[in-house]
Design a protein around this nucleic acid. Structure first.
Lengths: 358, 358
DNA sequence: GCAATCATTGAATGCGCATTCACAGTCGCG
DNA sequence: CGCGACTGTGAATGCGCATTCAATGATTGC
């Protein structure tokens, strides 16, 4: 059995193939000037030696690692898992690698970004975490694009990609109103996050247009999780003495699901008969039989594409766009947690799941 | 506003601090020989220049990148999401970075491993994907440990970490029998995976000990997903003409959940009255109110620790253990999809969720 | 048929850092 | 008071590769 040298270098391959090291490098670099015959010889030698090019070494000279840092702030929310999956797929297809960092929901991402910078990453995608201006400029000074996913930071240099959360909130208010709701409640998430704020704002805004006062809309904040929302639902609806609102907006699907389960199984309420509920995101779980959640669909694939476009990985020298924020349109998915008013009958979700075009 | 040089190098820092480049390197290397006073001077200069050490460059000399490749074969199963999260947390705490690769469930991981090797990763963790012997030796020849998570490959040099799936399958058979079940069915997953095979084996083995013949145990394979299992459940139970088995084993929780929903909402069956169901894994979703799934808990944290131990990241020169496979004990979590027999009353899950000790 | 162009090629260089080596002080101990 | 044992230090080197540069032979155009 042939003893194979572990970690052969381009020089080893060059020696075996009887060519220069430059030639080996060229053989593995698409588009470089090398005779097809010679390239074949090099590849053959490389195969014999189990040679694997060292990307780390090459990135020393090229200044590109093809690594993208993905910072995840809330893996407990399936929405972000879905996002991770989508980014992973797309970036792999583009020949990029994904370096993962998980941080506690809503906490600072500074440490993670610092670590990422040490690895000379080509870009940063940030979900559900705070971003300091110091880190933003640290990245931008180095020509590293940083994109906020599903959030934006007012006044920040960092660009962001998100859907129209205000509009989405309005859609939900609209749906509740159309279904005849008169009194309203919300379970909100991270109060520092613009995502939650905007959804609330759109929702409230629309209701106020109908003459409902803000003070009449009950609100409870919770941990941005299934359990947090279940807890919040109990504090909102557990008190039998108070009149019960007849519509509940869960600020995202996973929280809406937590609320739905608490309402049904702990308080014995019927949805939508006793109470209508809506979520936001349209995660795959939202359409499962126990939930059939009426919700607003985020155009994940569009958002992912937009994010990649903002990073313009193919033109690394292009100056980074600062502070871009182009909200994408979202749309309402009618299912079963709000009675469907006649005018909307044709909109009922066929439930092919989250669709590709968004 | 001070114009900050982008990407200062250790030489820049050295110049500003009035020391040699070696000193800068030492200042950032814990445990190296440098006077505290000088280190402080270096760090001060580094701060002024926004210097971030280049891990890529340093790994060229140290031969360690502190990057671990994590190959995920089935992100649709929350179990693996949980696993990813756990690895991410642990590895970050150990000062390692996680490079993610997603591959289609059950497909070859060769391409992903090859990409990982280019980045000179320090180790590979593989979940729910196939592994060729060629890749195994490619890694091992380079001294890179590769650990299979939640599976093993008979005859492979790669070590694996998993729970006692055979024993877990037996626990479930046991539970069904204790609850008085007489006829049985299974929805199985990836037929190539030892995990599914072993669970089936233990389950069938235990039933056969009670005189039940293998041919009497109905089995349908499905896509290893919620939807795949829902589909499988309909083919198993949709035929009203045949006698209905009174116990169904879903090979993992996400599939059991898909089956439960299909049985309840499509076929109108009551669980556990008409039919008992069990899953496997004990994912966080399993304990939610609509499911309350009786299942076998995998000791995730133990498994993660075991995996890290097998990679002995702190002793990179230690030879790699080949073909290690030490199944960890699993245990049954009683919830509501199997009627709890009197003898087991004290075992009912308090449902604090997946616990830390496993 | 000859000069000008072009496609290939290898030697040399540098990317940013850790590490080795030799050397200058310091200290301890007899 | 003196010599070995240490500690701290900087110059020099090399990690594995891409790239530049100059040189070569091949090809084209006229």
């Amino acid at each position: 059995m042939k003893r194979i040298s572990s970690r052969a270098t381009s020089f080893d391959v060059a020696a075996l193939a009887g060519v220069s090291q430059s030639a080996v490098s060229r053989a593995f670099t698409p588009g470089s000037s090398i005779a097809e015959e010679k390239r074949a010889k090099v590849l053959e030698a490389a195969r014999k030696l189990n040679y694997v090019p060292n990307s780390i070494a090459s990135s020393l000279t090229t200044k590109r690692t093809n690594i993208i840092a993905l910072i995840l702030g809330n893996m407990g929310n399936p929405f972000y898992v879905h996002v991770l999956h989508e980014f992973s797929r797309r970036l792999q297809a583009l020949g990029r690698q994904v370096l993962i960092f998980t941080v506690d929901p809503g906490s600072e991402s500074d440490e993670a970004i610092l670590r990422a910078l040490q690895y000379q990453i080509d870009g940063v995608i940030l979900t559900a975490a705070q971003l300091s201006t110091r880190m933003t400029s640290l990245c931008h000074d180095r020509g590293i694009p940083i994109v906020l996913f599903n959030r934006y930071i007012p006044g920040s240099d960092a660009s962001g990609v998100r859907c129209d959360n205000v509009g989405g909130g309005r859609l939900i208010a609209e749906a509740f109103l159309a279904a005849g709701a008169k009194s309203f409640a919300m379970i909100t998430g991270d109060p520092k996050g613009t995502t939650s704020q905007d959804r609330v704002r759109g929702f409230v805004e629309r209701l106020m247009e109908e003459g409902i006062r803000r003070s009449e809309i009950e609100e409870v904040g919770g941990q941005s999780s299934y359990d947090g929302a279940a807890q919040a639902a109990l504090t909102l609806f557990g008190d039998r003495a108070r009149p019960r609102p007849d519509a509940l907006f869960g600020i995202n699907d996973i929280m809406a699901m937590g609320a739905v389960d608490a309402l049904r199984y702990r308080l014995g309420l019927k949805i939508p008969e006793d109470l209508m509920v809506a979520g936001f995101d349209d995660i795959p779980e939202a359409r499962r039989a126990p939930y059939k959640l009426t919700t607003v669909r985020q155009p994940i694939n569009q958002m992912v594409e937009q994010t990649l476009a903002l990073m313009h990985l193919d033109e690394p020298d292009r100056p980074i766009e600062r502070g871009i924020d182009m909200p994408l349109a979202s749309r309402l998915i009618w299912r079963s947690t709000i009675p469907v008013p006649p005018a909307y009958r044709s909109d009922i979700a066929d439930d092919a799941g989250m669709d590709e075009s968004g």
